[in-house]
Design a protein around this nucleic acid. Structure first.
Lengths: 251, 251
DNA sequence: GACAATACTTATGTATACAAGTGTATATTG
DNA sequence: CAATATACACTTGTATACATAAGTATTGTC
């Protein structure tokens, strides 16, 4: 039913032969990211198979990957559904991310080689030259953070961070939609990079953690606004987010 | 060839109908854990399928899970192989684990409820009553750490830690094979629990991190011993571990 | 005798057919 | 009218058949 409305997206024609599985994964991931599939909605192999016009086998593998990454979860009725999340989950997410990003920055300060340090500085300048488009900044921001992860030279930390960031698509709009977030982020990024260039792990860690704490605040603002908007638009349906009364886990 | 030697393991008869996939996963996981499949060895779907006497479909899913968890990795020739690791990987593993365990302990100190605190104390005493068997201690130790993870009440941190610890089976024997490690671990565990009971996040974090640092030292000792033993036993084959010259990433 | 091209083998990716379990709806009986 | 039992439909799990790509070996030609 809902799948019909998703369209066929003719730009992204079915791949020649190799990668139907990856392709199905991308399509589902995009559908969740764009809220075409809403949290709690059941996702069935047969339906997706019909939608994407591929057999159940690659669809199955794609859904299992999404299950492992937490974007899908087992439904009470059996089968899988798009994961629910609430403000508590967002709080937990950022608490964990703060630790991991802090660790990455500290290790980058210790282990980044000269080339990696130069690239970090360059990316900083490149971001300043960017237009005020939230999407462009979000993309460059991701590349910037990936650069730090790489400079940390720790494969396990990299894996953990990648797995963690898979959850981001569920959160909706980027934090760069919050007012002044772009300017703030630039200042915070600068402090992180300066600490890394100065080979000061403690300062790098604290700067990175502060950066994530601020991102969390912006995130909450953006999400709360979305909740309000959604509640207004359909006042008698149940809101996407759960009850807001839970104590935040942040320190 | 190697799969014939693994036997049929009649205790664990093939499951009724549901769960061949999980069962295949367990069998492969156990095979890697017990070094029946050595690092670098190629693992083919058809072979495993014939070995376990199930079709390729559940084997495929099991292998994909192991790939996602890092126990298998893409082979240069195509297909999958048991992941290689070296002392550098072990160093990176413990560096990341130190951060995550520290975070879990700190959050547990803040968020553990009275029941969880009581259970932590009880587990501590239970471990003291255990015989000096490394395997028994390893098992209880795992439950103890899981209890801390749960008490942290952070689903993302829990996921990260679980994913990280999936790598442990590749490391071989437990660190409890190192002399005096059982006594040391008890002392370190006690400090962690005391800090959690005292609701002191900083002390809990530092105690947990110190605990992991010590575990790392024991791990290196155990692995080095294994390297020596292996090298003696088959002096003209290539050792399981790579060259040891890499700088450690530890702080 | 050596090098290149072609064919065959092998392993993974994909599709489809089949089985089993669960939930719901309908019909029958008390 | 209500409750229970049976049957059917739906969904996921498993098996097998088929396609494709890659690597190797063999054969033919220079």
């Amino acid at each position: 039913m809902t799948f019909d409305a998703l369209g066929t997206d003719p730009d992204d024609g079915r791949p020649s032969a190799r990668g139907r599985s990856d392709w199905a994964y991308e399509r589902l991931h995009a559908a969740i990211r764009d809220s075409a599939l809403e949290p709690g909605q059941r996702v069935m192999e047969t339906e997706v198979s019909a939608w994407l016009k591929v057999s159940r086998t690659p669809v199955r593998e794609a859904m299992h990957r999404l299950l492992a990454e937490g974007l899908l979860e087992p439904a009470l009725t059996g089968g899988l559904q798009v994961s629910f999340y609430d403000l508590r989950a967002i709080s937990e997410f950022y608490a964990t991310r703060e630790r991991l990003e802090g660790a990455a920055a500290a290790l980058a300060a210790e282990h980044a080689d000269p080339t990696e340090r130069r690239i970090l500085s360059a990316m900083l300048e490149a971001m300043r030259a960017l237009p005020a488009d939230p999407r462009a900044h979000a993309r460059e921001n991701q590349a910037f953070h990936e650069q730090i992860y790489g400079a940390a030279h720790n494969r396990f930390l990299l894996r953990s961070l990648r797995a963690l960031l898979n959850f981001v698509p569920l959160l909706g709009r980027t934090t760069y939609h919050a007012p002044d977030r772009i300017t703030e982020a630039d200042r915070e990024h600068t402090e992180v990079v300066e600490a890394i260039l100065a080979r000061d792990p403690r300062r790098a860690e604290e700067a990175a953690r502060a950066h994530i704490r601020h991102a969390y605040n912006s995130r909450v603002r953006v999400v709360m606004e979305d909740v309000r908007t959604t509640a207004e638009r359909r006042s008698h349906e149940k809101p996407v987010l759960g009850p807001l009364g839970h104590a935040s886990q942040r320190t």
